[in-house]
Simulated scan of single mutants.
Amino acid sequence: MSASWRAVDLQGESEVTMSDSRRRVRLLLTLSLVGVLFTIGVILVGVWTRLVDAGLGCPDWPGCYGRLVVPDETRALAHSPDAPLESFKAWVEMVHRYVASTLGLLVIALVVLGAPLRRRADYPWGVSLALLGVILLQGAFGAFTVTLKLWPQVVTMHLLGGLSVMLLFLWLHLRLRRFAAGRLTLGGVAAPRRPLTPLWALAMLLLVGQLALGGWVSSNYAGIACQGFPTCNGQWWPAMDWSEGFHLTQSVGPNYLHGQLHADARTAIQFAHRLGALALGLVLLLLALRHWHEARLRPWLGGLVGVFVVQLGLGIANVLLWLPLWLALLHTAGAVALVVMMALAVWGWRESAPQAAKQQTVEKEWAHV
């Protein structure tokens, strides 16, 4: 038996043998990593579905014209006379639903496999349950996206939900790695971890806000509302309708395919996204400069700033090139990469507690032995 596994709390050992525990954790580690990669794929498929205007390719949910596979035109017309079948768009939408459903099954498998380990010290049972809750909520948002006809509020929340699922998969994987390594100090107490400082919290808050703004830009079709860069429509402060652009209680009911807002409202949304990118970039740079002296954090902070610079370039290119499909997909992939790098940087910060604090904790535990 390895030293790392001897460090794990053996409470509830009657439920499962140690060898079974090791096999379970190895499988959980693999599945959680697969979940991260698979979720990224699902997010990109979802964005592609939206970019090719296939979000309403099937007018109902969870089936497509009342069936689990795309039917022929005769059956589709009999089911929904007001929604003519476009076979390509219907299949794109159904592929997105199939892969999203597979992701849900993967989450359920993780919860079931991890249940026997839930009483072990430092096992991330809470993260597993949070992942299950978010994936169920994400399924509801998927249904509302169709039934509410691409209502921007729901579409934006659906994107944020997908990123949240990916983040929880990643966090679960990191926690499982720590659990497998048995990184506990004497007495079965977890090693000290640094709390987030206000600067870290601000960076995370701005990133979430910028992701939400990106979703709001996409769901309101405001990607090229500002022509040109760095100016917007030839002006540094163009005509904008902020109240209409961010009217979050807009009515439910119209078909929001291609958007419902007028030009000045869409310009306000795009301009806000640009301002958000500026604020986020400055804070990320400040965060990197503040902690650059810490060798263990330097790769993550450098990667975070580097990904942001690439993402900024992709955003500018999307505007200048009039939002080509492949570039819009890359921009979404850049947002995913930003979330991953921020999570890894936060993990590195919390896990790299000063050695003095770790030594002090060990000495306190020895005093009680």
Rank of each mutant, 00 (worst) to 15 (best):
L168M: 01
L28Q: 11
G209D: 09
M166G: 15
A90K: 05
A190Y: 00
G142V: 00
L248W: 15
L323A: 10
L33W: 15
P62E: 03
R24E: 02
R120D: 03
L159I: 01
A130L: 15
E93S: 11
R274D: 08
M204L: 15
K364V: 11
T145M: 09
R119F: 09
R119Y: 09
H96P: 05
T74P: 00
K358P: 00
P195N: 05
G214K: 13
R194I: 00
M341Q: 13
S251F: 10
V146T: 10
Q359I: 10
G245L: 01
R120T: 00
G228Y: 14
W292I: 01
V155I: 03
D9W: 00
A191D: 04
A190I: 00
V95H: 06
P299M: 09
G315A: 07
R193T: 00
T156N: 06
Q11R: 15
A295H: 10
V146M: 11
G46K: 08
H158I: 02
S14W: 13
A357Q: 14
D9V: 00
L248T: 03
T17A: 10
A100N: 02
S21T: 14
V112N: 06
P230Y: 12
L314Q: 05
K358I: 15
W292T: 00
A333E: 03
V25P: 09
S219E: 04
G66T: 08
R194F: 01
G182A: 10
M342K: 03
L213Q: 13
M204I: 14
Q235M: 14
A343K: 02
R6G: 02
A7H: 14
V339G: 13
Y256M: 00
L37I: 01
V252Y: 13
P59V: 01
A317C: 06
S101G: 15
A353M: 12
W326R: 03
E73R: 15
L131I: 02
R50D: 02
A121M: 08
L205F: 15
G133M: 05
V283T: 10
F271D: 05
A263S: 12
V305A: 15
V283D: 05
A130W: 13
V155W: 03
G41E: 07
G133Q: 10
L150N: 03
L174F: 00
G57S: 09
M166H: 06
G12E: 05
L186T: 10
V127E: 06
M342V: 03
M204Y: 04
A288L: 13
G315N: 07
A345K: 08
G259K: 06
